[in-house]
């Protein structure tokens, strides 16, 4: 049974169209990732699904209940971690948790089993004001607050934005344990590396889903030939690439440059090396690699918006 079923949701703010007709289903027990750059419409989608915002048109059911008519029932059974820190900074960790537990007609003792792995990490700081926690700890506390009433569906809007890499890894480990408790998770992230940790992902760009599948399927459907190379002067390389006569898409990737070619690699690679030499570019580590989700996103986004 689909936990969430969305059909053709449209939402505009004035003349800005934030969501241009989004449709998808989320199955019970899966981790569904909404991946996309800032401003793609992730938070708007989350606000609609958490019953905070009304869409302009479209239909949707959440937990089998109509998003428009039965939103009060939906609210009882969902947990929500908003994209911006939404706890009381002057209340302590413990006070925040007790407060939200009461608001959801629950208590810490009642549902300790669900939050235990996170709560143990927070215990040393329980008397500290929430505003004085580190970014990672803030998100863990927010997650505790979102889980305290034992929701069957959890919405996490960019839970790891602004969080250090170690805490991000820990956070995703926690999501893994939440999943084993049978809670369906809908999570959004601008980080492509996190997308592979989801069961299914939807690539959101400018208010539309440009692709929705499992991460392995998305990677295997990558059509181009991906090549990476390293150079000391990436800016010079980028400038020269703008005049490259070959059919390709290129973008910086960390310290390297990634180039997607749409012709067979055996014929195109010598031509590319020739181009680099002509332009007097020193490079090394030129090789073909298998794509990541980020490469796929750029390929798909590039083909939708040439």
């Amino acid at each position: 049974m689909a936990v969430i079923s969305v059909h053709d949701i449209i939402k505009s703010y004035g003349h800005i169209r934030a969501l241009k007709g989004v449709s998808f289903d989320v199955e019970e027990g899966e981790v569904f990732g909404v991946v996309g750059p800032d401003g793609a419409g992730k938070s708007t989608l989350f606000n609609i699904l958490t019953t905070l915002l009304l869409p302009d048109s479209g239909t949707a059911t959440v937990l089998g209940r109509d998003l428009f008519k039965e939103y009060l029932e939906i609210r009882k059974n969902i947990g929500y971690l908003p994209g911006t820190f939404s706890l009381y900074p002057d209340l302590t960790v413990e006070e925040n948790l007790i407060f939200f537990a009461t608001m959801y007609q629950s208590s810490i003792r009642e549902n300790m089993s669900i939050i235990k792995p996170i709560w143990q990490q927070l215990m040393p700081f329980k008397k500290r004001p929430a505003g004085k926690l580190s970014g990672g700890m803030k998100q863990k506390l927010a997650l505790c607050c979102a889980l305290i009433h034992k929701p069957t569906l959890l919405f996490l809007d960019e839970p790891t934005t602004g969080v250090d890499p170690v805490s991000r890894k820990e956070f995703w480990e926690i999501l893994g344990t939440i999943k084993t408790q049978g809670i369906t998770v809908v999570v959004s992230t601008p980080y492509m590396d996190e997308a592979t940790l989801c069961d299914r992902i939807a690539l959101l760009q400018e208010g539309t889903f440009i692709r929705m599948d499992t991460p392995p399927n998305i990677i295997s459907s990558f059509k181009g030939e991906l090549v990476t190379l390293r150079t000391d002067d990436i800016f010079k390389l980028l400038r020269k690439m703008a005049d490259c006569p070959l059919n390709c898409t290129f973008y910086p990737y960390g310290e390297n440059l990634h180039v997607i070619f749409y012709d067979p690699i055996a014929t195109i690679l010598p031509q590319f090396e020739e181009f680099l030499q002509q332009n007097d570019i020193a490079y090394d580590n030129l090789m073909q690699i298998s794509p990541t989700i980020e490469d796929c996103f750029i390929e798909i986004a590039g083909s939708t918006h040439p």
């Binding site: 606000n47 958490t50 019953t51 905070l52 009060l72 609210r75 009882k76 969902i78 929500y80 908003p82 911006t84 820190f85 939404s86 706890l87 009381y88 900074p89 939200f100 608001m103 959801y104 007609q105 607050c145």
Partner: peptide, 13 residues
């Protein structure tokens, strides 16, 4: 402003 209102709004209180 701090976003806590939406947490209260979606709470069944």
């Amino acid at each position: 402003e701090t976003g806590t209102m939406r947490m209260l709004l979606i709470a069944p209180v």
